[in-house]
Amino acid sequence: MKSYTKYDPLVEYVLRSADNTLILGHRLSELCGHGPVLEQDIAITNISLDLLGQSRMYLQYAAQQIGNNETEDTLAFLRDGMQFRNCQLTEQPNGDFAHTIIRSFIFDSYHFYFCQSLKSSTDSSLAEIAAKSLKEVTYHRKFSSEWTIRLGDGTAESNERMQKALENLWPYSGELTEEDAVDAKMAAEGIGVDLKDISGSINDYRNNILERAGLKVPEKVFMHSGGKKGLHTEHHGYILAEMQFMQRAYPGLNW
């Protein structure tokens, strides 16, 4: 077991994106073969692949920064929950298709502006990862926004399911743009994204789509947070139990 639970600010920062994309990519991959329509099965698997591809770039960069023979695989498969830095939204279960779509919509609307801003990072590795990701994330945002509108404005049942998913997941939307000391330091150095700066665009975008979908933004919601510091919901442990099974059962082998 790794003894560290705190990393350098840069590593901390990179792991946040690495873990957001890893955990959401993993969640979406659970749906592979189980989508509501074949075309949507393919689309969701595609998004999962994009996110995992992005995660690999971040993980490799974090591993390189940490040194110590760390690799993308040791980071993904040998850290415990308290060392994971993903926001709690990304670990929420797939639920029905409404929950899957709303979770992606909340994340993608943040992720788009995040990558757009990170593209101008003074850290050339991060800038490069963000530029590559942005093309994919633009498509993800389009996909989840279109489905939010389609299901919000579909039938009475679909509207009700979407509103319920929104109520359930909205409390996890705040953490994505909640700035802590690491975010502030990275933004001040020109390495990271100024979350205060992109919050307005994210809110405008979400409000516009939700209005078109006929969905009401939940009001006076208590926002949960903690993922960025390694504090997760109960779901997280089960993701790791499954995802890390092989590396835990057969340590130190090549696959």
Binding site: H26, S29, E30, C32, G33, H34, L38, D41, I42, T45, N46, S48, L49, L52, G53, S55, R56, L59, E72, D73, A76, F77, E242, M243, F245, M246, Q247, Y250, L253, W255
Partner: peptide, 24 residues
């Protein structure tokens, strides 16, 4: 798909998902 969530490395995970997606 039964092994997608338990693939033993990041490389294998991505390759397996891509493969199952090809089948779709």
């Amino acid at each position: 798909g039964n092994w997608v969530t338990r693939a033993p490395s990041m490389r294998r995970k991505v390759a397996l998902i891509a493969k199952v997606q090809d089948e779709a």
